[in-house]
Design a protein around this nucleic acid. Structure first.
Lengths: 247, 247
DNA sequence: GCTTGCAAGCTTGTATACAAGTTTGTGGGC
DNA sequence: GCCCACAAACTTGTATACAAGCTTGCAAGC
């Protein structure tokens, strides 16, 4: 594949996985072309590839936008992840020691980063656990699929403001690895199902994704000074179910 | 999405699923452009999308080719299908009657087509069962993934000359649906795993995909007159493991 | 007769120009 | 003061021209 185009694609995807690009972000062709030092042609190529991967969308003659999955699409993404990840664990007969060691190392890294309070790389690592798992137990094809799905769920999480429970997620991961080590893959699958269920349940899928995300930030710049990385206090109006998109 | 480009993409994919396009087929941009009455730009767009879906590949300045999965890639594709399809069956709690009815109808159609000896639509229907299942039990996202995977395995089957056992496959499908009807999803999953295993085992993955496919046909055009749709007799030389790609 | 080098033609790769449509800012009318 | 219409700027959509490279056929040399 084209090195430059592949770079753009990869750069954007990994930025999404790292939570550095929010859903709904506009990705102008010319802007990206300047940024990467290539022509619009290559940018378009990368964007179209990302579109088939379900990561960006084009709005005719308006531009490319990072997808903002609907509640329905969010449910689909989580169901799909549940199906594939539990399926993977249940299909595998035994876990090689090398894989176990590598997974344990990953979980340890998670804990470390969480304790250090590094918010930005935290989300990335938590998602990476699943990609790592697919890579270790499955194959490249499976990994690619999981990676795209993880990008989706990462965007969904950003969109539906989850009650972030990084420690709990990491703890879940630990439990899954423990079950794998014990050779109880069925239990590992059950825990995985539960884990994904928890993440999904932590979202407020009844609330529509607010098109005004970031507005609160603009209105209260002081909050950015040095506050704790806890969940920002949502204002009451953002919970009103009567708010329509046209507002 | 672009209607014309989407059509090209869809046309090629469904042609592959129907077995009407063989692996390794060259897809010239200009040829396709003329065929569909569009410009090369649109064709390229469709091809790049199909490339990210793993259906075609580009060889620099030589052209686009329908993929010819290696033995390794074939194994990956089957593993991935096993993971997802058994995962789907095991994730589902209960099967709605409407779904059961629809699946039964599909299996009945399979039997009918097989008895009628319609070879071309037979392979299509057998693959369609899995797509149909994903659609009925899963969601659009899952269906899309399974569809792409089915396209892959269809190409793999063409490439590695399986011992085609259409009746057996259809019978397997029937068994899976029966287990679903009995409410035993775990058994259904087990049968699905077994079924996919059988299809994979029916292939000769030790034989490299012969780059001379179709050569035998050219040498023996008489065989095309009106022979039975049974498996063509493979010549002994095609089994020689010492044949290298450079031959 | 066989091999090797060259050239012509064909195919994709890439950029660019222009067309078509959307957004936004401005000015006039009410 | 508010609303509406128009125009200018900006963005993507599409085609086309040209560049770069591969394949193949031909001819010359051995």
């Amino acid at each position: 594949m084209n090195p430059a185009a592949a770079n753009i694609e990869e750069a954007i995807l990994s930025a999404i996985l790292a939570g550095r690009i929010a859903p709904g972000t506009r990705l102008g062709e010319q802007k990206l072309a300047d940024l990467f030092g290539v022509s619009r042609t290559r940018v378009r190529e990368a964007m179209m590839r990302l579109e088939t991967r379900g990561v960006v969308q084009v709005s005719a003659r308006r531009g490319w936008y990072v997808v903002e999955p609907s509640a329905e699409e969010a449910r689909e993404a989580f169901q799909t992840r549940r199906v594939i990840e539990t399926g993977l664990l249940q299909t595998v007969r035994e876990v090689p020691p090398r894989v176990l060691a590598s997974l344990k190392k990953h979980v340890a890294m998670e804990r470390q980063v969480i304790e250090a309070g590094d918010v930005s790389s935290r989300a990335c690592l938590l998602g990476d656990f699943h990609i790592h798992l697919a890579d270790a137990l499955g194959n490249r094809l499976l990994t690619e699929i999981i990676r795209d799905l993880t990008a989706r769920t990462t965007l969904i999480s950003m969109l539906y403001q989850p009650t972030e429970k990084a420690e709990e997620s990491s703890h879940d991961h630990e439990g899954i690895v423990a079950a794998m080590e014990a050779g109880d893959l069925a239990e590992a699958a059950r825990l995985m199902d539960e884990h994904i269920g928890k993440v999904e349940a932590g979202l407020d899928l009844t609330a529509r994704p607010d098109p005004l995300a970031g507005l609160r930030e603009l209105l209260t710049p002081a909050a950015f000074a040095g506050n704790t990385p806890s969940v920002p206090h949502a204002h009451s109006h953002s919970h009103s179910p009567s708010l329509r998109k046209e507002d």
